[in-house]
């Protein structure tokens, strides 16, 4: 029963790997290029995601609910915005890595508004990304984008909270 479930979950992936293996054997160039793309994503996934989840797990057992509620909860106000922006900026990795963090934050009592501010800042303003952006698009471009983004993220947070209600919770992704 359990194996069947696993097989079902990974069905497409197995198909994909068979296709890749076939491409390698028969020298099918498009297949090899696709596999190269996949390896690229896979590398990002296996370097960032385990670290991310490790931190999330430790965060879960060590950080008490009260402290999250106090700092980025519904009553936190502007300081809450500041803390959540700071937290999100210090992270790295692709956006899907932020989802489990959002779940933990939500469970520990972060306000709906701040969770979506967190997602916005994580996607756009994390420091590793910004350094990269400065290199290729210039300091002026990066600073302007940051400056225009922050108020909009706050606005998105407000709108999301208004639409979803204050009692909205992020689920564990099952």
């Amino acid at each position: 029963m359990r194996y069947r479930k696993i097989l079902k979950q990974y069905f497409w992936l197995i198909l994909f790997l068979l296709f890749s293996a076939g491409s390698a054997v028969f020298n099918f160039l498009p297949g090899q290029k696709i596999l190269a793309n996949f390896n690229f994503f896979l590398f990002e996934l296996i370097t960032f995601l385990p670290l991310m989840f490790l931190l999330v797990g430790l965060f879960d057992v060590w950080v008490p609910k009260e402290s999250i509620e106090r700092h980025i909860g519904a009553e936190a106000g502007w300081q809450g915005f500041f803390w959540v922006v700071l937290l999100a900026m210090m992270q790295a990795g692709p956006l899907y890595g932020a989802f489990p963090v959002a779940y933990i934050l939500s469970r520990k009592g972060a306000s709906v508004r701040n969770i979506f501010v967190y997602l916005g800042v994580f996607s756009c303003l994390k420091i590793p990304l910004l350094t990269f952006e400065v290199n290729f698009l210039g300091l002026q471009f990066t600073l302007l984008r940051t400056l225009f983004s922050l108020p909009l993220f706050y606005l998105i947070g407000l709108l999301m909270e208004w639409q979803l209600g204050e009692n909205y919770k992020v689920s564990d992704g099952k």
Binding site: F53, V56, L58, D60, D172
Partner: peptide
Amino acid sequence: GLQIGWKM
């Protein structure tokens, strides 16, 4: 904590 992270 590690177990929680690993499960997720």
